[in-house]
C-alpha cells in the first residue's frame, strides 16, 4: 500500500537529493503511527501514512533546521508549511514536499473508549478500522471515528506538493461545522459551563502546545514570571487563560489539523476552539490559513474594509 511512497523516498535518499525523509512509521501500540525520519534508502521501507498518524509532522521540521529534508504531508500539514514559510520559520528551498492522500486522522481515544477493553491489534480495511483485543474483533467505520477537525477540513490534499502520491482523499466540500454552530447558539452561561467541563480536565502538561507546529515561540507567555500572565496551579481561571490566550495567538495561524486535541492525554476537545477559529476566520475575513506561502497572516494586515461589527 505504501510502495509508491517508499519508492519515492528511497530514490530521494539514494540520489542524495535530501538528507532525510520525514513522515511516520508503525508505532508500538495499535492505531498509532510514530514520527520518523528515514535517513538511509533502506529506511524508506518503514514509512507509512494514513489515519493512524496523529501529530502534525510539520512540527518536526524545527528539529531538522539546516538539513535538506523531504516531508510527507497531508493537506493540513502542507498548509502549516506555508504558514511557517510566511512567518520566516522555514525556507521553501530546504524542504521537498511529498503530498499523500488523506481520509482524516483517527480519533483514537474514542475508539479506545467505545471498545471498552484492551485493544492489542488494529488495521485499516477499506473504510473501516478493524480492532482486536480482549473484547474480540470489532469494526468501526473510519468516517465516524475521524477527528472532529478532519470533519470540517476544507483542504484534505496537500497544496502544491513537489511530488504527489495519489489515492482516495476526503472531500473538502463536505466540511461540516454543525456542532460548532450548536455551541454558537448557546447562551453565555451554557457556553461557560460547556467549556469549563471540557477545560477543567487540563493538567497543564502542555502537550497541546508542544505538538503544535505553530507554537514555536522560544519562550511562552504561560512560562513568563515577569509579568505573571497565568498563575501556577489549577484554578480554572488560569487554565482558561492559558487555552484562550493560546487560541488568540492562533487566530489565522491555525490550520485546524487537530493534533493538539489528539495529543491531549486527558482527551480535552480542543477542536471546539480551533474549529471556531477556522470558521470565524472564514466568515469574517474569507480567510483560510496556509493556502499560499506568500500570504500574509490575516491578523497581521489591515484593510479598510475589514469587518468590524464584532468589535464592542
Amino acid at each position: 500500500m505504501f510502495e509508491k511512497l517508499r519508492e519515492t523516498a528511497r530514490e530521494l535518499l539514494s540520489k542524495g537529493e535530501v538528507e532525510c525523509v520525514l513522515g511516520f512509521a508503525e508505532g508500538t501500540l495499535p492505531m498509532i503511527y510514530t514520527p520518523y525520519h528515514a535517513r538511509k534508502p533502506e529506511e524508506a521501507e518503514k514509512l507509512v501514512y494514513g489515519p493512524f498518524a496523529a501529530p502534525n509532522i510539520a512540527t518536526y521540521l524545527r528539529k531538522l533546521k539546516g538539513k535538506k529534508a523531504a516531508v510527507i504531508v497531508r493537506g493540513c500539514e502542507s498548509r502549516t508549511i506555508n504558514l511557517l514559510i510566511s512567518e520566516k520559520q522555514l525556507n521553501r528551498e530546504d524542504v521537498k514536499i511529498i503530498g499523500v492522500p488523506c481520509t482524516g486522522a483517527l480519533d483514537r481515544k474514542r475508539i479506545l473508549k467505545d471498545y471498552g477493553g484492551e485493544i492489542r491489534e488494529a488495521r485499516i480495511e477499506g473504510e473501516k478500522v478493524i480492532v482486536k483485543g480482549d473484547k474480540g474483533e470489532k469494526a468501526y467505520v473510519l468516517e465516524e471515528y475521524i477527528s472532529p477537525s478532519c470533519k470540517s477540513c476544507l483542504y484534505p490534499e496537500a497544496i502544491d506538493p513537489d511530488i504527489k502520491i495519489d489515492g482516495p482523499s476526503r472531500d473538502g466540500e463536505k466540511a461540516d461545522f454543525s456542532d460548532i454552530e450548536k455551541i454558537e447558539k448557546m447562551s453565555p452561561a451554557e457556553k461557560w459551563e460547556f467549556f469549563e467541563k471540557e477545560l477543567s480536565k487540563c493538567i497543564r502538561c502542555y502537550a497541546c502546545r508542544e505538538i503544535c507546529p505553530m507554537c514555536y515561540c522560544e519562550s511562552c507567555f504561560v512560562d513568563s514570571n515577569r509579568p505573571v500572565w497565568v498563575e501556577p496551579g489549577f484554578d480554572y481561571t488560569d487554565i482558561l487563560s492559558f487555552h484562550l490566550i493560546k487560541m488568540y495567538h492562533m487566530a489565522g495561524r491555525c490550520v485546524d489539523c487537530g493534533a493538539c486535541e489528539r495529543a491531549c492525554p486527558l482527551g480535552i476537545r480542543l477542536s471546539f476552539l480551533t474549529r471556531k477559529l477556522t470558521k470565524d476566520m472564514k466568515e469574517a475575513y474569507n480567510f483560510v490559513s496556509g493556502l499560499s506561502p506568500e500570504e500574509k497572516p490575516a491578523l497581521g494586515v489591515f484593510s479598510p474594509d475589514d469587518r468590524e461589527d464584532f468589535i464592542l
Partner: peptide
C-alpha cells in the same frame, strides 16, 4: 529524543516522577 516534543505528559502521568516547582502567588 527525535520523536519527543518535550511536553510533560509522560512525567505528569508517571507515578514515580516527582519533580516540582515552588512558586509564590
Amino acid at each position: 529524543a527525535f520523536k519527543c516534543v518535550n511536553c510533560g505528559a509522560c512525567t505528569y502521568v508517571c507515578p514515580t516522577c516527582y519533580c516540582f516547582d515552588i512558586q509564590d502567588v
